[in-house]
Design a binder for these strands. Structure first.
Lengths: 172, 172
DNA sequence: TTGTTTGTTCGGCTCGTATCGAACAAACGA
DNA sequence: TCGTTTGTTCGATACGAGCCGAACAAACAA
């Protein structure tokens, strides 16, 4: 009876474990997210321990990491005791935007700063001797700027809007 | 003299090491790419050993990995002996497209298959008992389909075209 | 053929990370 | 107040990844 349903959910959760791995998270993180995703209400740490079989400390670490990247949320302060409860962020586009803004955008900013500094350093020197190197660094900076432009547009809009904008053009 | 230039290049290469880490590669991979990026001609494995200080076996593994994901290319068959030489792929957008197509697109296809299978399984059962679970899985499938659409448009066009399409709309 | 150069594979070492259980801290209920 | 529940932090262990040197394989030169 319910068993069949449980099997189907288990399949989906296992799929989430695989996905988590692809995106640089642990399988355990995928499972925790999966349990939250199918839960009717926010889930406490003891309940996650019960449902996943992981140790309390492990769940504590996983929930912290997932909370930090915005994949789950702490639903603190609520009827019951001081139990912390977690709910999943179901808008995956939002999660992606968050992660890219936190890490990729950051990395691009740092890289751009390094490249500009390098160009400044080379600018003070004999042109011919460094021209080829200067050109290469400049190209890299251009490429990065282009990627940054692309990324910031994607990060500042809903997935629907981006799709709509592209489809209304002649790209597809 | 040349030293100053070497320092600037070293800064840029170290930046590439950091970037490589953010994107799930090893620092050593970033360095190898950096050396190739500044080289005037394709570089052999012994030369990479010389320039990076890494062991021959390490360079062998790194070049294989970078070649697989399309960040560098084997320039085999060439004037000299049987030495294999490597050149960098400088079109980073092309690299990104490759990686996303190889891994993310693949993961999304697999997930979609799992989700559809789950929906089929639930379809045979009593509607009311599984309606909420079915709805959740369906939403996940929808989200994934949307992300796939977005991704495939981005992966099938040049960065310039995608940027142009978006800017010609009213998104920015 | 035989020695040399080049590249891959293998075994081992190190280090980081995931995980556990236990100790600790904080908040709640009695 | 004191015990109980909840959550975090702290070593300890285990497993995987990066890296190395050595053994091996393959191609070239003499």
């Amino acid at each position: 009876m319910d068993d069949e349903i449980a099997v189907v959910k288990e399949d989906v959760i296992e799929s989430m474990e695989r996905s988590a791995e692809v995106y640089g998270l642990s399988r355990s993180a995928g499972r925790v997210y999966g349990v939250l995703y199918f839960a009717d209400d926010p889930v406490s740490i003891p309940e996650l321990v019960e449902e996943t079989g992981y140790a309390k400390s492990t769940i504590s670490n996983i929930t912290r990491k997932l909370t930090r990247i915005g994949m789950i949320h702490r639903r603190s302060s609520e009827g019951g005791g001081r139990r912390v409860r977690f709910a999943p962020e179901t808008d995956l586009w939002f999660v992606i935007q968050d992660v890219f803004t936190q890490y990729v955008d950051r990395e691009m900013e740092m890289t751009q700063r390094t490249l500009q500094q390098a160009l400044d350093d080379l600018a003070e020197r004999d042109i011919d001797a460094v021209e080829q190197d200067r050109e290469r660094i400049a190209e890299l900076a251009d490429t990065y700027e282009q990627l940054q432009t692309l990324l910031s547009v994607a990060m500042d809009n809903s997935a629907e809007d981006v799709i709509a904008a592209i489809e209304q053009s002649d790209l597809d």
